[in-house]
């Protein structure tokens, strides 16, 4: 884990900027994320996290700057990028009126997986999450924690290089959050790069490296350990507080 810099680069952003008129939502973001790394993306509401993530996912075009995702250019090779990333949005991204199996089959189908592969994956996911007796139930009947775990499993169904998680554990209890992070670790060990935004500082500690955004700029980027030393803080909470206090933008 210490030798991350020797690994292949998964995400490379270079002066990535997004302007809305006079307002600069994301200001010259430059960073690299390595393969199999869990990269935490922190910031207060309105700091520009979601804007940055949307640019990286191809949901929004940057105003300037460049970036590559899994080696593909975000301007010219969006189709290739789409095949190689998974995405779990802030809002719940499964269909409540479809069953667990139907959801898996649907997303498998959308990503062009073969019927055989979908069947195999469905069984694996259901076994891993212990959803055997819920497989044919509507997703709306599942508790929130299970829904989130299922949504994550579906997001990496097609074995992407990178998975983007936008505040994946919002509103989930601590025990389930812990289990959710177990899933993230498993994925990272299999070589999936995890790019995750979060509000929970205990989760920040689980990341290999974290960047903290303030007013559209990346103000700090290092391992949780180094950041605590750099800011002479006991916890990530303190680090975050010290940085976020400088923010001029209020909650948008």
């Amino acid at each position: 884990m210490n030798d991350l810099s020797n690994r292949a680069i998964s995400i490379k952003a270079d002066l990535l900027t997004k302007r809305y008129g006079d307002f600069i939502a994301a200001d010259a973001l430059s960073f690299e994320v390595y393969k199999g790394e869990i990269f935490g993306f922190l910031g207060a509401n309105g700091a520009g996290k979601t804007t940055a993530m949307r640019m990286l996912c191809g949901l929004s075009l940057p105003s300037s700057g460049s970036a590559t995702i899994a080696g593909f250019d975000i301007y010219r090779e969006t189709e290739k990028i789409k095949k190689n990333i998974g995405y779990m949005s802030q809002k719940f991204s499964l269909y409540e009126d479809l069953t667990v199996l139907e959801n898996i089959r649907f997303y498998g189908g959308i990503y062009g997986l073969s019927d055989g592969a979908i069947k195999e994956k469905s069984e694996a996911i259901i076994a891993r999450l212990g959803l055997q007796s819920e497989a044919d139930k509507l997703v709306s009947a599942l508790p929130l924690g299970w829904k989130q775990k299922l949504a994550f499993s579906v997001a990496i169904l097609h074995q992407p290089h990178i998975v983007f998680l936008d505040e994946p554990t919002g509103g989930v209890d601590p025990v389930t959050r812990r289990q959710f992070w177990d899933l993230i670790y498993e994925a990272a060990e299999e070589g999936v790069t995890v790019f995750v935004t979060t509000h929970y500082m205990d989760e920040a500690e689980y990341c290999n490296r974290i960047s903290i955004m303030v007013d559209g700029r990346i103000e700090a980027l290092d391992t949780p350990h180094n950041l605590k030393q750099q800011f002479q803080a006991d916890s990530m909470d303190d680090v975050f507080y010290k940085l976020a206090r400088q923010a001029k933008r209020v909650d948008l």
């Binding site: 996912c57 191809g58 949901l59 789409k82 095949k83 995405y87 949005s89 959308i110």
Partner: peptide
């Protein structure tokens, strides 16, 4: 959003 991120 999830659909737009997908290759669909």
């Amino acid at each position: 959003e999830v659909l737009l991120v997908s290759p669909f």
